[in-house]
């Protein structure tokens, strides 16, 4: 029995686990196409946990608010305070409702303006690790979502769907280090690729030496990568550093405030490139 006791052999176990990880990583790095099944299944299962956590936190908040409200009922004198607090809470609720309505109106206006088939979705969770900038939305394959569908907001481009499960989908934000989008400068029509970077900023790369780019220029999607529809706002040029004739660093400030996103639109209409690819595959 002593031979079977793995606790006596921590070193062997450690080597075995590390070896397992190395094999796992190697298998993925060698095959770069498609989403790993483990990733899709785990995400699908955990999306439900995230949904439950979202409902749970809201419930706890409601219970806590109720408890605080009850404490205010103890004396007559505090009755007035309670009424005032209720009125203030109601005012805040109405304000929140008005804000939400305005947000939905903006989404609706964007939907009409873009003439794209879109679907509104709510963000229900953030990424599981601080190293990847992803969020989870409450729509999935059941609602017609597919990988690489673009996600937009009234302010501009948000990101793309990386893994849809049945009732939720993981969205890679444009500011993720692995994210990229074809970009075009509105004023000079100079083209390049915008990639996620550090500190909530984007970097514009693959820009020609002859391109005309200055601080403040509006950066739009070029649609060249076949994910994002053409002409949507990415952000504004914040910094341009040149090294002789070539561009050393071009920093773009995203138009979308990723910290205050609550609702987004999923673009269901495929881009011309994606539609052509789908046509070929069929």
């Amino acid at each position: 029995m002593a031979i079977l006791d793995i606790r006596q052999r921590a070193g062997y176990l450690f080597v075995a686990v590390i070896l397992g990880h190395v094999i796992l990583i190697s298998a993925q790095v060698n095959t770069r196409s498609g989403v790993p099944i483990l990733e899709a299944v785990t995400f699908g299962v955990f999306a439900e946990v995230q949904r439950a956590a979202s409902v749970g936190t809201s419930g706890i908040r409601r219970v806590w608010s109720g408890y605080i409200g009850l404490r205010h009922l103890q004396t007559d004198n505090e009755e007035l305070k309670r009424q005032l607090a209720d009125a203030q809470i109601e005012l805040q609720r109405q304000r929140a409702l008005a804000d939400r309505t305005r947000g939905l109106e903006r989404l609706l206006a964007l939907r009409d303006q873009s003439k794209l088939m879109t679907m509104a979705a709510e963000i229900i969770a953030a990424g599981a690790t601080p190293d990847f900038r992803t969020v989870t939305i409450d729509k999935g394959t059941r609602d017609g979502l597919r990988p690489d569908m673009a996600i937009i907001a009234p302010a501009g481009v948000v990101g793309r769907i990386v893994i849809p499960s049945v009732r939720a989908a993981k969205v890679q934000l444009l500011i993720d280090r692995n994210a990229a989008a074809g970009a075009i400068i509105e004023r000079s029509r100079a083209q390049g690729v915008v990639v996620g970077g550090v500190d909530e900023r984007l970097q514009m790369q693959k820009v020609s030496e002859a391109a005309d780019i200055v601080t403040g220029d509006l950066v739009l999607t070029s649609g060249i990568e076949g994910i994002y529809p053409k002409g949507f706002i990415i952000g504004r040029i914040e910094l341009v550093e040149k090294n002789g004739p070539s561009y050393k660093r071009i920093i773009v400030r995203p138009a979308v405030d990723f910290t205050s996103l609550e609702e987004v639109l999923v673009v269901l209409t495929p881009t011309p490139a994606r539609a052509a690819a789908q046509g070929n595959s069929e």
Partner: peptide, 27 residues
């Protein structure tokens, strides 16, 4: 032993929920 097993499990799940390579966080 518990440290490495919990690290492996937690890291793998975290990797699976992220858009990175599964196993790097686990390792």
């Amino acid at each position: 032993v518990t440290g490495l097993l919990s690290g492996a499990a937690a890291g793998l799940v975290q990797d699976a929920l992220s858009s990175g390579v599964i196993g790097i966080g686990g390792l």
